[in-house]
Design a protein around this nucleic acid. Structure first.
Lengths: 342, 342
DNA sequence: CTGAAAGCGCTAACAG
DNA sequence: CTGTTAGCGCTTTCAG
């Protein structure tokens, strides 16, 4: 018999639905013996609350939506796992929305579930229209950007910021400290794109070291292994004198290592490579990738906490666009970097 | 103003809620001009249906649950993406449930959402208790196992089967065809575990070629890169005469390649390595991994289709445990395998 | 401490 | 063709 209703449990226990509800949620005092009888009935019938009904009655929603370009991008699953772990204690569930980088798909998701099925929306770099996000907020479904890249430059939406400029700086300083002078940069997405802050940090560190960052080769490439591969291949062919490559993300950095291998340039003896994020793959590649680690789990937890806060707040703080900043990124040295050859 | 209700739209259009509902879902004939007015009101107010309310009234649920051990395992995201793509046209959403391989966590999920929030459950290898799954079915929430390993040996639950035995055979035949005779096997999970069929196929091919599969070194290892690394390291140290390694999954195969690199054994010149599944990483590793590709997207689509069928059927076919079989796995030769050294 | 009653937003007969 | 009516399963005042 497919799942009994609250009313059936009540009948079985000889009480009214209201009492069962009270027992279930610990509200309104209930006598000890009545409670026992109710609990027995619940156990005997195998009662389980009907989440949509509860959602309707409470005016809340039992899920949170996570918007990503594609869950198949190796960084997102780690983040999604952390989000789900943070959600579970509160009895909420995670809906994955793959936008494929298409703003229309993103908007369709927001229209369908934000505020109805999902109580709030977590946004990873999913190429969404900020106006759509603001509209979503106004309709009463809080939105949090999960990895804003520039703590000093708030986006006008609630967000968790990671100091990616610092990440770029750390990566560059590491290479410079190893004696590298001729360093190429592979920057994910186009100029002024999502990785601009990382590149700024790189440039700043170069300049601080008295190096001419303007003269350093720079290629904007898709934020994928293949993108990094192609970029590095081109760059290293044109500039065989480079001793190091800085990539704004781990996937392109891994691609760059492959390109080096295919060109017969040994990493790290002949060429050092450094990335940003420190995804699982960075640990597992050979040579293992040196990378600036970003606090993924912390960001996920902050994002969920912030979202929850906005939800509790019930929209009073709408428009305030509170920002949390994670702890700082830090360098993880592995085997893909070493002292510059003479 | 946070999302209007159907009733407000109706008032705005000067009709009753029922009419708006009819317009929305194309049921019950509605006059052209009334329809116009209703559509105008919907657009003007920015109406969006409230999914939980609809679910409650229809007695259906707007989501499907996907149970996995951890979405951070590199194979699952590819599958999850395919599932979500298959779900979207029907207006359903995907809830990710990470069980961490813990049957209790899995049961908790099933208890909470199967049949309430989720209309059905898709199960990847998540270490769930089959009794829990059958109980879930009986409560009216169809369950489909997404990657059953043995088409000839039905699990007693609806499933999509992939001929993994054949996959193991193809992998072995490939190595044998290249002249390899001393081949080590790394099998994910323990004896009689989830990868048993793959190993059987391997053994069968060995025997068919007149090789003594019993003498071939065999290590059961965790189904991870690290597991494959450790296993291969041990195996190659003990048996430096091996010329090839067969792994029942790509992650351990990649780990084996790393172990070979660390031991100074060049792949594929000195050691060939083959895996199963053909995940994205297989393409991206260096050398790129030869692997027996499994039809992931097809499996996802079949699983969704089967689940939908069971849902439409409304439980009449409960207990029938229908099985779909995907098209056959096929070998993808890349750079990690070559002729056996003399 | 427990029950009665109203309503969350939507759908689905059934009348008119 | 459109309106009326009655729920879906649960929560939540408000009385008793």
């Amino acid at each position: 018999m497919p799942t009994p209703t609250l009313a059936e449990v009540a009948r079985h226990a000889g009480v009214t639905p209201a009492t069962v509800s009270n027992v279930l949620r610990g509200r309104g005092r209930v006598g000890a013996v009545t409670r026992e009888r109710v609990l027995d009935a619940i156990a005997a019938l195998g009662y389980r609350p009907h989440l949509p009904a509860r959602a309707l009655a409470e005016g809340r929603a039992p899920t949170i939506a996570l918007m990503v370009t594609s869950i198949a991008n190796p960084f997102y699953p780690e983040f999604a796992l952390a989000v789900e772990n943070a959600l579970r204690p509160a009895g909420q569930f995670l809906i994955i929305c793959n936008t494929a980088g298409d703003p229309d798909t993103g908007r369709a998701y927001l229209d369908q579930i934000a505020g109805t099925l999902s109580e709030g929306v977590l946004v990873m770099n999913a190429n969404l229209d900020f106006d759509d996000l603001r509209a979503t907020e106004l309709r009463g479904a809080p939105v949090v950007l999960c990895m804003w890249e520039r703590p000093l430059d708030p986006p006008g939406l609630p967000c968790v910021a990671v100091d990616f400029r610092l990440a770029g700086e750390l990566a560059a300083q590491h290479l410079i400290g190893l004696g590298h002078r001729r360093i190429g940069a592979i920057v994910g997405s186009k100029a002024h794109g999502i990785h601009a802050a990382r590149h700024e940090g790189f440039v700043a560190a170069m300049q601080a070291a008295g190096l001419d960052a303007g003269a350093a080769p720079l290629i904007y490439a898709p934020d994928t292994t293949q993108g990094g591969y192609a970029a590095a291949r081109e760059m290293l062919t044109r500039r065989p004198d480079l001793t190091a490559i800085f990539a704004t993300n781990d996937l392109p950095a891994l691609g760059a290592m492959q390109a080096a291998a295919d060109l017969g340039l040994e990493v790290p003896r002949r060429l050092s490579v450094v990335g940003i994020t420190d995804i699982q793959l960075a640990r597992e590649s050979r040579p293992a990738l040196t990378s600036v680690a970003v606090p993924t789990v912390e960001a996920a937890e902050l994002a969920v906490a912030l979202l929850r806060e906005l939800i509790e707040d019930g929209g009073r703080a709408a428009g305030e666009a509170k920002m949390c900043v994670t702890s700082a990124p830090h360098l993880v040295v592995r085997a893909s970097t070493s002292r510059a050859p003479d």
